[in-house]
Design a protein around this nucleic acid. Sequence first.
DNA 1: TATGTCAAGGTCAAAAAAGGTCAAAATATC
DNA 2: GATATTTTGACCTTTTTTGACCTTGACATA
Lengths: 155, 155
Amino acid sequence: MKTLVDRIEQYIKQLLDMSLKGSIELKRNDLAAIFMCVPSQINYVLETRFTNQQGYYVETRRGAGGYIRVIRLSIEDDAELEKMLNLASNKKVSQQAGECLINRLTDEEFLTERENVLLKAFLDTSNMPIEAETADLFRSHLLKTMLLCLLRENI
Amino acid sequence: MKTLVDRIEQYIKQLLDMSLKGSIELKRNDLAAIFMCVPSQINYVLETRFTNQQGYYVETRRGAGGYIRVIRLSIEDDAELEKMLNLASNKKVSQQAGECLINRLTDEEFLTERENVLLKAFLDTSNMPIEAETADLFRSHLLKTMLLCLLRENI
DNA sequence: TATGTCAAGGTCAAAAAAGGTCAAAATATC
DNA sequence: GATATTTTGACCTTTTTTGACCTTGACATA
């Protein structure tokens, strides 16, 4: 059973897919009306499903004629991957951050669905008898290694 | 006279048999209502009857719209993989042993060439500032997780 | 130019809707 | 009778939904 957030998320992503520019403009109140919910629900969707980490950028404007613009950032070239590599080298990679990164790479078709499941399972250290510090280090190792493999292209 | 656990276990297994994907989604509260028991009884059933060793993998999500997903692993048709699962659970997995396992799985076409490269890179902890003990633990975690993923019927 | 109005969107915290944990009590089993 | 397994319930955490109240900006108008 899909939740409201899920449906709104899907709707926005569909709009993005259809748009040629990779960005769309919304009216918060209109969207809320379509889904028959309170306007702040839209903010919740944006905050939880369209973050920077997840590969989106959101611009808004208040007042009369206000809007919400959702921009999909794409990983066009290796430069973007290297940026991620930097992130992964930061020693501290929470499980959540790691999952975000993997989901994003999957969205952009750098990883297959199977690899996605596999990698996310690896990142999950919840049943490993180690300290948080070590877990973060471990994840950082995995992500870095994975990105290097991707960069070393065509395997 | 069957116990409550037994009946709930049977019910879930029936649902799994009927599902085409080898996985089902439950609502903990609904199930508890059906069997007129406390919700935590469902957890007990899952913990005691649907473990990895018994061939199941359970995913859950909390909060509104939460669910419990039970995934059946295809262990019966693959006694070989089950043996490996045991091996990987042995806490101590040297890098060499890990690579052997991965190569073997690749030979038998359970893993793609790409996954092979990726996984072997993960196993290499030589540039991680950790003790040998911890490294073995990591490898064991990776291998076990990998095997569980391979056994999942739904990916 | 300064000001008021109204149409957006923003914030934040409470309520609701799930699922999780843990230990005590009750039953079974040996 | 001792031990193992099952059942129950009180309390906790996570995620979503809702609503009351706040801020911003365009436009009209004095």
